[in-house]
């Protein structure tokens, strides 16, 4: 069970900021600033955090949709960022991605059946005669009807489109799927359907997920382990129960206190964070969270806290722990 499928070591991804008359690089947005974690075979690691904390960038850099700035990513011990273009292309089917926005992630001029089947054909994994049956089979697994195959994306609802997005990832028989906020643009009832579909598929096919989300209720439902990101770094990572029951980092505690509980009589202490998330182009010194941390001390303003194991695979980066 605990055989690592993906290993990420000190991964960094900076985006250049261009400015001036000559469009020179005048700075960097440090979207991902040194993250380290492993994803074990068959598990779901969730990545949570506010908008702009770099969680989508992590997902995209892991499967090399973006080139890294520094660090290493291994898929089954293969260093993904050192592969040549054609080697990477051959590996692509094994690592797939489902996007947040099911409206922009499907090519409007491609019939759904073609969009789903195209990559199989391009990789030479199937003959043209068998393609249609395989596409329809995969669509049915994902809860789509066979007659949908010749329709265009705009003829579908958001939930159906997300099923198409999942079907096109699934048809390549991947081992690892990055789910980049796959349900956050859907209605709650549809969210449940898609989450259940994803969990069923995981069980049947032994899939490994990186689940990126800002919705902690969904995360609690689907995850094996959870990592919390703040401004390009992982601040805390633990198994789901450990993280939800014993959050150690003040940021995690604040996030958890914001999860709505459907009980109007329940009184509880909300931790309200002051201010906005600082700019990743110019992050604060020391612990990046000190500007908003209710417990910040002098040491937090000067020293970067070490990201350490406090026992049982519970990692946290905080001076106060």
């Amino acid at each position: 069970m605990s055989e690592p499928l993906i290993e990420v070591k000190n991964l960094k991804k900076y985006f250049p900021i261009r400015g001036g008359i000559l469009q020179r690089t005048i700075g960097y947005v440090k979207a991902v600033d040194g993250v380290t974690f492993t994803i074990n075979k068959g598990e779901t690691l969730s990545l949570v955090g506010e908008s702009g904390c770099g969680k989508s960038t992590v997902g995209r850099t892991i499967i090399r949709l973006y080139d890294k700035t520094d660090g290493e990513v291994f898929y089954k011990s293969i260093p993904i960022h050192n592969l040549k273009k054609n080697e990477l292309r051959k590996l692509r089917p094994k690592m797939q991605l489902v996007f947040q926005d099911p409206f922009s992630s499907l090519n409007p001029r491609l019939r759904v059946g073609d969009a789903i089947g195209e990559a199989l054909l391009d990789h030479g994994l199937i003959s043209r005669n068998e393609l249609r049956d395989k596409v329809i089979e995969t669509m049915e697994i994902c809860g789509l009807a066979p007659y949908h195959v010749d329709r265009y994306p705009h003829e579908f609802s958001g939930g159906q489109r997300q099923r198409i997005g999942i079907a096109r990832a699934l048809i390549l028989d991947p081992e690892f799927i990055v789910l980049d906020e796959p349900v956050s643009s859907l209605d709650v009832s549809i969210q449940a359907q898609i989450i259940n579909l994803l969990m069923d598929l995981q069980q049947q096919k032994g899939l490994t997920y990186l689940f990126i989300s800002h919705d902690l209720s969904v995360v609690e439902h689907i995850s094996t382990r959870v990592a919390v990101m703040y401004l390009g770094n992982i601040v805390e990572m633990a198994s789901r129960d450990e993280l939800f029951d014993h959050p150690l980092h003040p940021y995690t505690q604040a996030l958890l206190s914001a999860v709505p509980i459907p009980d109007p009589d329940l009184k509880r202490e909300r931790i309200i964070l002051e201010g906005d998330i600082p700019s990743p182009a110019n992050p604060p010194k020391g612990c990046k969270f000190h500007t908003r941390c209710p417990l910040a001390k002098d040491i937090c303003r000067e020293q970067v806290p070490e990201y350490k194991d406090v026992g049982g695979g519970h990692f946290v980066a905080c001076h106060l722990v």
Partner: peptide, 22 residues
């Protein structure tokens, strides 16, 4: 810049296919 171009790349299509077809 659209996501469906990223989708096409994630599928592992040839760069030529991504640019000209998608």
């Amino acid at each position: 810049k659209q996501d469906y171009i990223r989708t096409a790349r994630a599928k592992g299509l040839k760069e030529r296919t991504v640019i000209f077809k998608h």
